[in-house]
Amino acid sequence: MPSGGEAGGVPTALVQGVRGADKASVARALNLVEDRRASSQAAIASLLAQLAPRDGVHRVGLTGPPGVGKSTLTSALALEQRARGHSVAVLAVDPSSVRSGGALLGDRVRMMFDPGDQKLFVRSLATAGDMGGLTQAAGAVVDVFSAAFDRVLVETVGVGQSETAIEHVVDTVCLVIQPGSGDALQFIKAGIMEIPDVIVVNKGDHKLLAERAAGDLRGALASLRRAGMRLGDSDWKVPVLVTSARDRAGIDALADALDGHRAAFDAAGIAARRRQRAAAWTQALFLRRFGEHGLEVLGGFEQLAARISEALRGGAPPIGVVSALGADLVVQLRSRGQAG
């Protein structure tokens, strides 16, 4: 079955519903993009190809080690953005059990939300054993959300562990750490400081400790910058903030900082950034599915990157591109088999 076009058989009403941020439609679209059956892939690609990011949408990833209060911070941030008049979608990613495949999801993320609020949507997703704390479907879920809501928040455990990590599916990465944990220094040592665009020291109710940790971080960032190390985007000075999600303190400043990072890009800039990140995400998905061997069959890294860029520019979604590349891979393998 060819991908794209009408073949996916996605009802127009569903596409319209997502664009109009109708909750039932968004939920149905998410059920579809999470579907891993081969028979559903064409429909997914077709749906995503018909959905474009809303004007001005901002996709933010919140990441950091377990236990730093990311869920509470995410909830507080979502409420702050609602108060500023934005519609908000939250994707909460939780790890699955390796042994049973089961997972406990969204533990208390949504609890402070008004269930009647039509402009606030929460979905949780299990990692299903995927690396980097993000599941394969995450990119597609974010794309559906981007077509329907003004702000998309992705909350996930773990940071910078592999190429399928959070930075590929969002515009702004916010690293959340705890005061006194030594996390910040470890991140710097591990070179993870290339990722975050905003750093938050949460649980600022240990106020002195938090301020000290933030100060240390700012110092470390400044000296690294002086040493010529690239930190996030070259001309963006990574802000370090202190919040207490529990007491709702510092949340407005965080929302401002995130908006500030988004505002640093013009329309063309954000589009280019998203394309670049979508390419990396597509590559990761491809490697995950077809491995080094697939890469080699399609002519190596540069060849793959070029094809991905071209396909993405043509409007195909990452999942669709991977499916198309996979189909091509099968053809090539078959012709190799005939040649041999």
Binding site: K23, A24, V26, R110, P115, G116, V122, R123
Partner: peptide, 8 residues
């Protein structure tokens, strides 16, 4: 019900 819907 809102959660059940959103979470699918």
């Amino acid at each position: 019900v809102a959660s059940a819907l959103e979470e699918g």
